[in-house]
Amino acid sequence: MIGKTDRWIKKYIKEAEENNANTSDRIKLQQDYVINPLLPYFNGVNTMEIQQHLYQFGLFIPHKNEKDKIVRWLKKDFKSHVQKIYQYLQSKWDGPSPSIFILPSNEENRELSILFNGSSGLSYPDKLFLFLPVDATTKQLAALFIHEYSHVCRLHHLYKENQEMTILDAIILEGIAEVIVRKKLGKDAGNQYIRKLDNDVFERYWNRWIKGKEATKRHDHLHDKIMFGSHSIPKNLGYLLGYHLVNQYAEENSISMKKLLYLENEIFLSSLEERN
């Protein structure tokens, strides 16, 4: 199911412009028209928490001069492109049917614009969010959708509901997503922080940050530091390591993307041990 986010955004911008709303009022209006309809998809969480969380992952942050951009965004037919690629991947990967929400992205964020083409996303076993800039190309949209939908498929197939995920789960999940994006769309697609690491660099990072910490839980503060980086940890470290690990496995083994998507973590780990 693709949510009617275009209607929500239309109502939001109409209300904001008619009332000549300032930034604070717009943030509140965004809650009313765009975030509240999402409440049924999150258990026991309030509107502000959802809004904050989506901001962290790239949802547009309202401001006074946004009208032209939002109006242009609404004229783009992102929905039908997503529908096509979704149907194709769902049958190819025997994938589940998540709720899909397509929303404008935070184009004012330089990091997001430069390294992620202004596109970002967020996925769960039962739902996924696509945050798109007004000028997103079909290829950028496809790269984002493939990445996020691969998460939904793997989470849905391999994990129990409410199972607590670990850092190893996240590293491999992200590695698989980026390898599939590049196989399908070419090396220039996907997260531009990701580059090939030399084997010795990979090993150094792995031994320093992951070895012995594989079971670190999602809620542990170290989890996100490893995934996204911090003052002392390289940017997007978890993504870099995951890409290296999964890509090496895919290059050494002739394997379909579908098989790769559902391969157990242990298989990737044993390939790593064999190399050492």
Partner: peptide, 15 residues
């Protein structure tokens, strides 16, 4: 900003 609860989920590396 933030400091609220982490609602989980998996993104593309932007945070």
């Amino acid at each position: 900003m933030g400091g609220g609860r982490n609602l989980g989920g998996y993104g593309i590396g932007f945070y």
